[in-house]
């Protein structure tokens, strides 16, 4: 088992834990946090491949920088949407937002 495989396995673990949090948690903030966790796991993959990949280069790290930026922007917008929703419905429980049903 090479080092790369260890890093990838760790990333897979973190990803799955984050996925579980997204699917299960009732508070919307925690859902957003779990999404951040999943993105982090992907970043770890990128950086691991940048060092241990077939052709090691800095491309992976640059890509992970971009990903991080995007994740931050998305978190900001997400929280803004959540606040707007909260003003309307006075709740942050995800299972009370079910207008898609009709």
């Amino acid at each position: 088992m090479s080092m790369l495989a260890s890093y990838l396995t760790l990333a897979a673990v973190l990803f799955c834990i984050g996925l579980y949090g997204v699917l299960t948690k009732r508070n919307a903030i925690i859902v957003l946090l779990s999404i951040e966790l999943m993105l982090n796991a992907a970043n770890l993959n990128l950086v691991a491949f940048s060092k241990y990949g077939v052709v090691p280069s800095l491309t992976g790290q640059v890509f992970s920088l971009f990903a991080m930026t995007l994740a931050a922007a998305e978190a900001a917008v997400g929280v803004a949407v959540l606040i707007a929703l909260y003003r309307r419905r006075a709740t942050v429980n995800v299972d009370e937002f079910d207008e898609l049903r009709r």
């Binding site: 903030i29 957003l32 900001a76 929280v79 959540l82 606040i83 909260y86 006075a90 942050v92």
Partner: peptide, 11 residues
């Protein structure tokens, strides 16, 4: 940011 969000919404 998340903690701000937590503080600003009743939970």
């Amino acid at each position: 940011l998340m903690i701000f969000g937590i503080m600003m919404t009743k939970h």
